[in-house]
Amino acid sequence: MAIQKREYPTQQAIIEGCIKRETLAQRSLYDMYAPRMLTLCMRYAGDRERAKDMLHDGFITIFNKIESYTGTGSFEGWMRRIFVNTALMSLRKADVLRKTGELDDASGEQSLEPSALDKISSKELMELIASMPEGFRVVFNMFAIEGYSHQEIAQELNISESSSRSQLSRARSWLQERITR
């Protein structure tokens, strides 16, 4: 829209507007990132209702803490980090993460062909990940998509690194089985 182009021509202008607590800038930021952040939340939450709550809480945190974005690194990366933390907090409250620690039975590494992903669409893949058992869904998301290390995952989830590895392995086999079915 012309009005948006005039006032917030760039992402930097939107961020500056958000720092000034301008509602239009906040709305612009929301419109830019809400779809991708909702996808992120759905991957962690497993259901849309809980994901919507995470989206709400995540954006409130973003708007309240936007001054703390220093400009180093991508803004989207910063936002993703906040949304992952928000999601983890929400899952912790719902006692979902306890199940992550319970699955401590390691199994062998799975080798997955990247070409396997050509068979499904992004939407199907997202739904598949969201439907993963809670026990290893979080670890898979954090490691495979967000790029956390096992050490970071272990710290965030208060589990051992070996647990993180074994849950990732389980997640991979679970996913491979569903994709190749």
Binding site: A34, R36, T39, L112, S122, K123, L125, A144, I145
Partner: peptide
């Protein structure tokens, strides 16, 4: 595999 997975997920948006 992870890179491809990441690409697919980062580019996908679910409308709220």
């Amino acid at each position: 595999f992870d890179n491809r997975l990441r690409e697919m997920m980062e580019s996908y948006g679910e409308m709220p």
